[in-house]
């Protein structure tokens, strides 16, 4: 395998690792906190919000936004590191 190919493979591997990490958070805040664990979390309240309900109708959405910008930042650093960024 040529050098540029190993570089490309390493870049892709790191990218996949970031994606998996973010998708775990994505899954936990929506399907985890918002659906599967909602009854347990509802025992906790913040102001008038039951916590599980809050994750399902508010919190998960805020976290989704953060996740996308976090990914954009991380992958941009990775682009620089492997010198595959756009000019």
């Amino acid at each position: 395998m040529s050098d540029s190919n190993t570089q490309a493979t390493a870049y892709w591997k790191e990218n996949l690792a970031i994606i998996v990490k973010i998708m775990v958070v994505w899954f936990v805040v929506s399907f985890g906190f918002g659906i599967l664990l909602v009854d347990q979390l509802n025992a906790i309240t913040i102001g008038g919000y039951k916590l599980g309900f809050w994750f399902a109708q508010q919190g998960s959405i805020y976290i989704f936004v953060v996740l996308i910008f976090y990914y954009a930042k991380k992958i941009e650093q990775l682009d620089e590191k492997y010198d595959v960024h756009e000019d």
């Binding site: 973010i22 929506s30 309900f53 998960s60």
Partner: peptide, 12 residues
């Protein structure tokens, strides 16, 4: 909530 999470989470 299915609509709220479902129609936003797809953008991730």
């Amino acid at each position: 909530s299915v609509f709220l999470m479902g129609w936003t989470g797809g953008f991730v």
